[in-house]
Amino acid sequence: MINDTAAKPHDAHRGHTVHYDPVAGKIGMWLFLFTEVLLFGTLFIAFAVYLQKYHFEFREASGHLDKVMGAANTVILLTSSLTMALSIAVLERAKKRLSLLLLTITILFALAFLGIKSVEWGAKFAHDLYPKSATMLQKPVGEQVFYGLYFTMTGLHALHVIIGAGIIMIAMVLVKKERTHAERINFLQNTGLYWHLVDLVWILLFPLFYLIG
């Protein structure tokens, strides 16, 4: 299955072979996602180690995170994964405009997620809770480590949301210009895979940070 060779039209102008191989594209994307999983996985290992070491402090600090906002963001990201998947499904049926609409909604969800996240971070900063702040330094070291991991992991995740939204915008341009279409849908599918990973990481972050308190 993996060995059927793709068409390789020669591109005389560039003196080089240009070929469209969606299977290779998908292999490459999955391998890249492995690296992302390991990137976050390393942080989850750190979380596990410190959760065990500072069990009480982690529960204490976790109780101070806003569960409602965290839950709202979980709903938002899960729904955005749905609109992302639907945009691929409708483009496969050649419904370009509907696909673009769904991608726009996905980006709006991403912005909503980032908005809520910034309100949450802002509230923490307003309470003088950020790395090395006076209030932070008076807290037990276990809580300091909790907040350190909280800012690191949700920050890195938010960075991925921003990058993901950027890639979705590029996908929209490609769909609009019909460089990506029903017969050549690889880019949009890979965008979807990336977006689902961003979603998946949040699904793990939410209970670990918000619900253990």
């Binding site: 180690v49 410190y50 070491k53 500072y54 090395k132 070291v141 300091q144 350190g148």
Partner: peptide
């Protein structure tokens, strides 16, 4: 680098890290 420049405690034993 986050620990060094932003003071986020992760590895420094003086601040609870391992």
């Amino acid at each position: 680098l986050l620990e060094r420049f932003l003071g986020i405690p992760i590895f420094d034993p003086a601040r609870g890290g391992d």
